[in-house]
Amino acid sequence: MRSFLLEDDPEHAAHFKASLAATEFQVRHFWTAGSFFEALAESTPQLIVLDWMLPDLSGYQVLRRVRERFGLAVPIVMLTSVDNEERVVAAFEAGADDFLTKPVARPVLRARLQALARRVNQAPAAFSGSVSFGPYRLDYARQSVRDVDEPDARFALTPREFDLIWLLMNNPDRFIPRAELIAGVWGKSSEVAPHTLAQNVHALRKKLGLARRDIRLAAVYGSGYRLESPGSSR
C-alpha cells in the first residue's frame, strides 16, 4: 500500500518506518509540507500519515488542503505528541480517518493502519451504491449527501461521519449496538475512545439537521443507537 509519511522528527520517522518494515505498506517519507505537496502533484498515495507539528505548515493545514484536493478518497491518519480532546475533534472534523498519539507502540501502529487498510479495501463491496432515507439521498461512490427538499443544501461530513450515517440509513429503525457500529465504521481491530462514537453521532444530528426533518438518531440505554424513520412513534 503506497503510503506518504510527513514527519519532521527523525526519531519518530525512523520508528514509524521500522514499525512497518516487512508489511504491505511502502512508506515514502517527507520532512516538509513543501516536499510533500511536490510529490503529491506527481503521485497519489493510498494512505497518508501526517504529523501535527511541522516546520512550514501544521499537519492540520496539510490535512485541510489534501481534503480540498482529493475529497475523501485518500485515508489520512494524524500523529501528535499532544493528546487533548480539542485537537482530536479538530482532526476528525477536518477529515482525518484516525488519530494516534506518539510514541505509538509498533504492534499498535501496525494494527491500526492494517485495520484502516482493510476498511478501505473492503469499501467497494461493503459500502456501495446509494440509499434513501426520508428526504436524504446518499451516494457512496461520490461520498455525497443530498436533501431533496433543500437541493442547494451542502453537508460537509467527515469520512467517519459519512460511513456512520450510511450504516445507520441502511438499517432503519433497528437498534445497532455500539460494538457493531464501531466495527462497521472503524474496523474490528480499532481502539476507539468511548466518546468518539458519541461525538460523531452528535455531529451528524447537527450537520444534517435531523430533528427538523422529524428524524431521531436515538441513543438506546447507552449501549447503541437507532435511526428512527420520520414520524416514528418509538
Rank of each mutant, 00 (worst) to 15 (best):
A156H: 12
A156S: 13
K188C: 04
A141E: 13
R154N: 03
G184R: 01
L210M: 01
N171W: 04
D152M: 12
E191A: 14
P124H: 08
L181M: 10
A179Q: 14
A183M: 01
R146H: 13
N170Y: 00
F175R: 06
S130W: 07
W186E: 12
I215C: 09
A115M: 10
L181G: 05
A115H: 09
P177K: 08
I182L: 13
D147F: 10
K188G: 05
G187K: 01
F155I: 08
F162L: 06
Q143G: 15
T158P: 01
R146V: 11
G184I: 02
V145Q: 06
R119I: 03
A183W: 02
A193F: 15
R146W: 09
P177V: 06
R174C: 05
A123E: 13
N170T: 09
P177E: 11
K188D: 09
A117T: 04
Q114E: 15
H202N: 13
A126V: 02
Q122Y: 06
Q114A: 14
R216Y: 11
Q122V: 02
R205D: 00
A115S: 15
I176W: 08
S128K: 13
R212N: 12
G187W: 01
V220F: 10
Y221A: 15
L116Y: 07
K188E: 13
D152L: 13
F175I: 09
N170H: 08
L164S: 01
I215G: 10
P124W: 10
D163W: 00
V220D: 12
L208S: 01
A219E: 12
K206W: 01
F162I: 01
V220T: 14
Q143F: 15
R118V: 01
G134S: 09
A198Y: 10
T158L: 01
G187C: 03
R212A: 10
V148C: 10
A126I: 03
P172V: 04
A179P: 06
I165Y: 00
R205W: 00
V201M: 04
F133A: 03
H202P: 00
R119C: 04
D149M: 10
L168Y: 00
L168A: 02
A115G: 15
K207G: 02
A115K: 07
L116M: 09
A203D: 08
F162P: 05
R205E: 02
